[in-house]
Design a protein around this nucleic acid. Sequence first.
RNA 1: GCGGGAGUAGCUCAGCUGGUAGAGCGACAGCCUUCCAAGCUGUAGGUCGCGGGUUCGAAUCUCGUCUCCCGCUCCA
Length: 478
Amino acid sequence: MANDNKLQSIIGHCKEYGFIFQSSEIYDGLSAVYDYGQYGAELKKNIREYWWRSMTQMQDNIVGIDAAIFMHPTVWKASGHVDNFSDPMIDNKDSQKRYRVDHLIEAFGETLDKEKEAALLLVMNQLLEANDFAGLKQLIEDNKISCGVSGTCNWTDVRQFNLMFSTEMGSVADEANVVYLRPETAQGIFVNFLNVQKSGRMKIPFGIAQTGKAFRNEIVARGFIFRMREFEQMEMQFFVRPGTQKEWYEYWKETRMKWHLSLGISADKYKFHDHMKLAHYADMACDIEYDFPMGFKEVEGVHSRTDFDLKQHQQYSGKKLTYFDTEINQHYVPYVIETSIGLDRAVMMVLSEAYVEEDLSTEEKQDSRVVLKFPPMLAPIKLAVLPLTKKDGLPEIAKALIDECKTQFRCFYEEKDSIGKRYRRMDALGTPFCITVDHQTKEDQTVTIRYRDSMLQERIALADVKRLVLEKVQMFGN
RNA sequence: GCGGGAGUAGCUCAGCUGGUAGAGCGACAGCCUUCCAAGCUGUAGGUCGCGGGUUCGAAUCUCGUCUCCCGCUCCA
């Protein structure tokens, strides 16, 4: 319950302080679509940047690309999304339970003997292939398949939910011009596999990374920015020699977990969730789950995708997508290990982790603050410079310091209200460092630096500010 | 999609046995010149989510709709 309140508080805080707004709010909003505000955009950009540099700059054998959202429609036939990304569903009217039709029938099949089960599944698959929804409903009714909750056979019609958005390309809106908004970014990498490998003279094992928007027409999209219809993925496809996928899968599981821990988040907030039921392309798969305010939920997936995708594209395009491995003198279609993290989920994770309501009450008075304890490298604003008063030349000194620092990192200037109030405002935005310029600054060129998390203050030389902050906000220290 | 809850100022909410809106905080301007919010003065800001109905009159009653939250469901 307290966690429900925490999610509410975070959502409210995000809106009030310019991190995340609902899309089209003045028109009542658009369901499950959100906009990033002035600070949210900075935060998101910083997380993306940290991921990008971790996965490209810091790696010897991974390069980044930026593929288009639109792709040839056949891509999605080859990937299996046209056929598998839409699930026929049926509801039981009495229990209000919804089932995927294939799951419902398969579960019933397991109660039959082997022969009958096989016959049932054969019929089901034929009907699924033909998109014969009436036939599927008939099949359910003929077999008197009942709802596990209500026990009745009072079913709605079978309905289709296609999770891909589509639109038309070109001026003529006919069937031939339908294009999809990509439901995942991965295919942009697979179709460019040879382009990158050849032009970059890449040798296996190597990886291709990219970040970008993807779109899914979720039936129910909820949980703030956890499940949105338009979202951003950050993913990397690592191409390996067939047979070595197991070791690389383990390698990337571990490497990606280290990345998460490098955000300063403790290990007990994470767990791996191995997939028992694998997607059609995978031979091993797991999720990295983070303990969100609403419980452990997937933030990242690590999948061993085998050679499924490249083989499919090879088949559908008629183009060879093989690699010649000079070490073993062999042509082969590489196997792929995928790491795929939702950027918006990462934002939500970082926000959940950072958001703290602190009770600062003393015997004399009640006091509290809301503080976002972002890792400094991710904070939207790195440094606030605050003149203690707005006269006696203090603002001039403060502004000169800002001018000195703003080429390197985001700064914020504020002279209104009491110094304590300004500190608290910066806490609410997650600014890790505040510099206060006072009268003593004019005497000895020192200022007060105040730390967000500890609220401690110390006197440092004005000339050292830029270097000190730069050291603390860099992404990769020594 | 089903069930439950909610929508009034930037935020938290009051007003809801019908008579066209208030508080606290916040914001802005000024005073104070203060090293951890809540000192003083002043100002701005709301067709009460949207649409229809009942009524002389609707924030209030009623119907519809949109959005958000929770649970179920779903989730490559």
